[in-house]
Each structure stands twice: as structure tokens, then as C-alpha cells.
């Protein structure tokens, strides 16, 4: 065994490089890529939906927390408009209030008209006047302080700081977030299960490789790594396809919805598209972990 034989020349021995132990292409990969890509697409859409819903909930809460409404009832011989003007003046000088403005009577009538209908002598009804208060966003005054300011001026009024709505909206926002996260985790778990199942099938289909490598002294970790890298690549590619598809759809929704996003209830922003970026990496990581665990468990079953 001193020199290479002449017959090896046709083989181009010097150019030989070890071939990968696992076939580079497998007919089953296409269906796996499709299924994982669909799951990644759904997961990305869910993630973008959760972000948009969270933004909507924050927006609503922000609008409500920045404002308060004061219902003013005139006392004695004071006219409703005079009472409202006095309340607006009292509140304007209160700390934590950026602006207090008495609403015109017409606006108050507009607010109650849906309940009473188009009544011609609406002006004759004792409709309370409203004062719209815009709070200082940095140090907003609370309802108690506004109430104290009004009482100090002997104004009969009720302060509504929207706290009942804020609580409900916050609760609804939290539920939307939790629901979205739950759906996202469910889809991620389904993707992981599909990858684990595919890995098991791949190992079964490549039992010959596993057996030969095992019998020639390859360590379990070495064999598991082959499958880990293989399935991480496949899932990473699938994740990339799913993420791009979701980003394209998100961009289309953003464009279709104009400046406000898809709808005021689900305001998609350009920045939401960033949410799809980790998808290929997460898909690859999940696939690698599932492949490793499956391969190691199967290898432990061998002698």
C-alpha cells in the first residue's frame, strides 16, 4: 500500500471531497417545507396581529386617560351656559389640566339626540352642560382633584375620568394579548411537533445511515448533529418562506389601510413587519432541538 493505483486517476482522487452522510436532497423535504412554512406564516400573522391589537388597546387607553368630561348642573338663577363657563374657568387653573373647554349646547344636544330622537323643543329640556377637560399628559390631574376644584367654586358637577372604560379596555387589551400569545404558542408548538414528527420519519427513512454510522463507532451526539443541522436548515428555509409571505401580506394590509393601518381596530404599522424577522431563526432552533431530542431518544433505543 505504498502508492495510489493508476486506476484511481479516472476517479480524480486529488479532487475527491467527502460527501455528506445524509443525502443533500430528499423528496420528503418539499412537503415538510410547505407545512412548516404555512405554520410559520400563521405564527407571523398572529404575532403581527397581537402587536397591532396591543397598539390599538394602548391607543384607546391613552386617548381616554388624557381626557375627562365634567357634567355641570346650574344652581339657583345661574344659566347652564354660565355654570359651564365658570366650571371651565375653575378647571383651567387646576394643576394637571392642560385645557378645559365648555362644549357648545348644540354638541350636548347632539350627544343626547340618539336617545331622544329629533325633538324640536330640545332646548326646553334641562340638558346639563359638558366641559371637556384635556389633562396634562405628564402629570394628569385625577378625578378627586378636579372634583375638589369644582366644589371650591360651589359648582354642582360630576367628573367622569373614564376610569370605568379604561379598566374595561385594559382588560380587553390584556385578553387580546393573552389570546394572541396563546394562539402563537399553539402554532409554534404545532410547528415543533411537525418538525419532531418529520425528524422521526426522516430517521426511520435513514435508518441505514444511522445504523452504519452507529456500528462504525460514531457517537450518538455526532449522528444526532447530522439530523439536527439537516432539519434546522429545512425549517429555517421554511421559516424564511413563511416570514416573507407574512411580511408581504402585512405590507399589503398596511398599504390597503392607508395611514390608519387596516382598520382602527387593527392598526398595522410598518414596524410590525419587523416581528417576522426572528421567524426563520426560531423555526431553525425549534427544529434543531426537536431533531436532536428525537435522534438521541431513538439512538438510545439501539444497542
Amino acid at each position: 500500500m505504498s502508492e495510489a493505483p493508476k486506476t484511481a486517476e479516472a476517479f480524480e482522487l486529488t479532487r475527491w471531497k467527502p460527501a455528506p452522510f445524509l443525502p443533500e436532497r430528499d423528496g420528503r423535504d418539499a412537503s415538510l417545507v410547505f407545512v412548516v412554512a404555512v405554520l410559520c406564516f400563521l405564527a407571523c400573522l398572529t404575532a403581527m396581529g397581537v402587536i397591532a391589537a396591543d397598539r390599538a388597546a394602548r391607543g384607546w387607553t391613552g386617548q381616554l386617560t388624557g381626557e375627562a368630561t365634567v357634567i355641570v348642573r346650574p344652581r339657583g338663577g345661574e344659566t347652564p351656559d354660565a355654570a359651564a363657563a365658570r366650571a371651565a374657568e375653575a378647571l383651567s387653573g387646576t394643576a394637571g389640566v392642560a385645557e378645559a373647554r365648555a362644549l357648545e349646547p348644540a354638541k350636548a344636544y347632539d350627544l343626547i339626540r340618539p336617545w331622544l330622537g329629533d325633538v324640536s323643543d330640545l332646548e326646553d329640556l334641562p340638558v346639563p352642560r359638558l366641559v371637556a377637560v384635556t389633562l396634562d399628559p405628564r402629570h394628569p390631574a385625577d378625578a378627586r382633584r378636579l372634583d375638589a376644584a369644582l366644589k371650591a367654586q360651589s359648582i354642582d358637577a360630576t367628573v367622569d375620568d373614564h376610569s370605568i372604560w379604561i379598566k374595561d379596555i385594559r382588560k380587553a387589551g390584556g385578553r387580546v394579548r393573552a389570546l394572541g400569545l396563546g394562539v402563537f404558542l399553539l402554532i409554534a408548538a404545532a410547528a415543533a411537533a411537525v418538525v419532531a414528527f418529520a425528524t422521526r420519519a426522516g430517521l426511520a427513512a435513514r435508518h441505514d445511515v444511522v445504523e452504519v454510522l452507529h456500528m462504525t463507532g460514531a457517537e450518538d451526539g455526532y449522528i444526532a448533529r447530522l439530523f439536527q443541522v439537516r432539519f434546522a436548515r429545512v425549517a429555517g428555509l421554511a421559516g424564511l418562506i413563511g416570514a416573507i409571505a407574512a411580511a408581504v401580506l402585512g405590507a399589503a394590509l398596511r398599504l390597503a389601510g392607508g395611514g390608519g393601518g387596516l382598520t382602527p381596530a387593527l392598526p398595522v404599522a410598518w414596524s410590525d413587519l419587523i416581528a417576522v424577522m426572528p421567524c426563520p431563526l426560531i423555526a431553525a432552533a425549534v427544529a434543531a432541538a426537536a431533531a436532536h431530542l428525537t435522534a438521541v431518544r431513538l439512538l438510545k433505543g439501539m444497542a
Binding site: P18, F21, D208, V212, M215, T216
Partner: peptide, 19 residues
């Protein structure tokens, strides 16, 4: 137990790669 997707050369060299 030959690996059908590897050439004869790769099959023969397999134990040395593993080692």
C-alpha cells in the same frame, strides 16, 4: 449495510471519517 447515496469510495472511507 452500504450507504446507497454515497459512492463506493465514500462508503469505503466511512470508518476513517468517523475516526
Amino acid at each position: 449495510l452500504l450507504l446507497e447515496h454515497l459512492s463506493a469510495f465514500d462508503n469505503a472511507a466511512l470508518p476513517l471519517r468517523i475516526a
